[in-house]
Design a protein around this nucleic acid. Sequence first.
DNA 1: GATGAATGAGCCTTCATTCAT
DNA 2: GATGAATGAAGGCTCATTCAT
Lengths: 213, 213, 213, 213
Amino acid sequence: MIKSNIKNPDRVRMRQKQICRGAIKVFRKKGFHATSMREIAKSAQISLGNLYDYIEKKEDILFLAHRDILEQIYQAFDETAAAFDGSVDRLVNVIRAIVKRSFELRQEILFCYTETKSLEKKYMKEILRKESEFVGKIEVLIRDGIAAGELRCEEPGVLANVIWYNMTILALRGWNILPAYSVETFTDELIRFTLRGLCAREGEKNKETRDIF
Amino acid sequence: MIKSNIKNPDRVRMRQKQICRGAIKVFRKKGFHATSMREIAKSAQISLGNLYDYIEKKEDILFLAHRDILEQIYQAFDETAAAFDGSVDRLVNVIRAIVKRSFELRQEILFCYTETKSLEKKYMKEILRKESEFVGKIEVLIRDGIAAGELRCEEPGVLANVIWYNMTILALRGWNILPAYSVETFTDELIRFTLRGLCAREGEKNKETRDIF
Amino acid sequence: MIKSNIKNPDRVRMRQKQICRGAIKVFRKKGFHATSMREIAKSAQISLGNLYDYIEKKEDILFLAHRDILEQIYQAFDETAAAFDGSVDRLVNVIRAIVKRSFELRQEILFCYTETKSLEKKYMKEILRKESEFVGKIEVLIRDGIAAGELRCEEPGVLANVIWYNMTILALRGWNILPAYSVETFTDELIRFTLRGLCAREGEKNKETRDIF
Amino acid sequence: MIKSNIKNPDRVRMRQKQICRGAIKVFRKKGFHATSMREIAKSAQISLGNLYDYIEKKEDILFLAHRDILEQIYQAFDETAAAFDGSVDRLVNVIRAIVKRSFELRQEILFCYTETKSLEKKYMKEILRKESEFVGKIEVLIRDGIAAGELRCEEPGVLANVIWYNMTILALRGWNILPAYSVETFTDELIRFTLRGLCAREGEKNKETRDIF
DNA sequence: GATGAATGAGCCTTCATTCAT
DNA sequence: GATGAATGAAGGCTCATTCAT
């Protein structure tokens, strides 16, 4: 995807990972613009010149970082969704997993939110397409829940966006929530709010759901 | 608040407004970092030298812009809250008003989200304190609703944050919502979701609430 | 012609002259590519930042230098041509004057020859157009001489180019000529060669011409 | 001449030829400075590391290229001079041959003129010595012509330089000549101008010379 | 001998900020 | 108070050259 002077593709993959991990370490604290290529190189333990053998321009690293961070979120999604049956159970556990992961990666997520705008068109498109795909997966869960008679709402597409958005709230607004509430308290309340918002039937059999009400 | 060489405080206020309005015009399109002081000066129709008589450093303008933009949101809140009786009606209409205003100011809001991190501690604190205050007002509305027996939830403080956060969703995720749904459809669904999430009783008498269910 | 941030056009002219004179001083020794902007700034006694207020990019200085140097040649041409009557006398004295000036400016001329290729299209065109204009003036002198029955040749346009080219020979090949011959000896022989090449009648009355044969 | 790590001198010669031919291909278009070692290596179909086994530094390639290009001119000289008897015939045909060759190699010649200055002292000397040698050969032709009573001039050494210089004019000033005149028209006029400049007697017997007058 | 990855000095350019008028 | 010219530190990026395999 990203242009590189290096022939060996395995090395390219390995080095790009190394670069992006090193970059993220600095981006978390200073953001993209405030971080110089020299700092990135140092943090990634690669020389400045060599760094430019694996990328074309600074912005490429922004994309690599973005992709890497979001991938970790998406992975949490897919792993969790695969581990549960039933759309409501899946939804509940996905929320729980992603809120948790988002909290762990709160600085990284914040970074993504604040720096997406700096991505060039081409990269922006790819990032947004991927994100859109996962919002779509939430929508499918909702629709499945509705089909199963376990959920009810008018616009699943709208709520999928809202729900997805809410899962990352700790990254953006943790400063106002976490001093007062634990991650667990927050998560439970968010799940409750979401299920009620989706008119989840209290009587259903999912353990998770039952416990939380 | 911001240091200035100029004696006349009225002139200072006037000029700072002029500067911040000029700055916002450019910030919307290019963000804070990508905008040079020259551009700000030009957009604000003030000379570069004179500009520095009313602020100390570029970051000061970021703060002025931030404050100005958020003020517009807060104003919508206060005006709407004042126009309605009953906590649920207030809540519903505040959501409606702020979603609308956030949509109008979506570029500005996005700017605030993405550039808050560049604020220095001192300014950041003031901005966050103010925002926290308004989340508090939401919480009061919820608690009032609960007290009136019209709402029910476990953690009003948590949900106040979530609800506030959701009101600005169009600025951050409009790209994935607006191509598919109108602002009105979105708003209605968000309000419905929120009311259900708060276990609002369908039978209550507020016109807004009744209509939407 | 060249973009500048500075408002006062007199100052722009003055500073651009200063810049280009400072630049030429370094260019003569090191050429264009090998000279850094820092060196140019230092040689022109202007700060690096301020330098960029008067030009847009390094190449602009190359153009300024080019123009300045060639202007000095052209000036010698026009002054000399104006000082003499009769096309042959004019031609002879123009050769003498320009060979002399080219010798004085030999490093600068050499610089022009070796760095023209680095000029961007737009500038190149302007430089070449001007040069072409002066070759045209030589051609006119030849044609006038022919019309007056004092010269004879088949292709005045071709020879105008050759003659013009020969006037700058000391700049490009002085290394092989000047160790063995004085500028005067060279000039006299070149003029003789040229007049004979143009079949100038020995019997004519121009003093210059008579002396040299 | 040029330092190399490789033992086998045949291999060195072969590789250096390969390198210089590859380099010239790129130099013609981009010049010396603008061409990177990577590009040279690619154009010469040799790896970057291996390239440095046959040269010491980039400048060495400049010398190799220079020598290779000029050799082609010198070859044209020697071949032509050998093919004709009589100094004037030789002179005329050498001019014709070298003008032709210079036109074919105009980009390369231009390259030599514009990049000589980048040669380091040691190489510069060798290049200039060789060139001087050929100017000397022209001078000999003139002196022979004078001795044979076929030519006349005061300073054969000066005119030898001028004549040599004029043979490469198409490379440096073709832009102003070739749009208007064919190479043949130019060559004929240059020869005529030169012969007249040397007071060649019209009545002599050389075929070439007779035809052209 | 050959390959290509690695190094780091140095270049052009921008821009926040100061200062003379 | 206002203007706009001046300063110089710092940033992204390139590229000649070296080195490990």
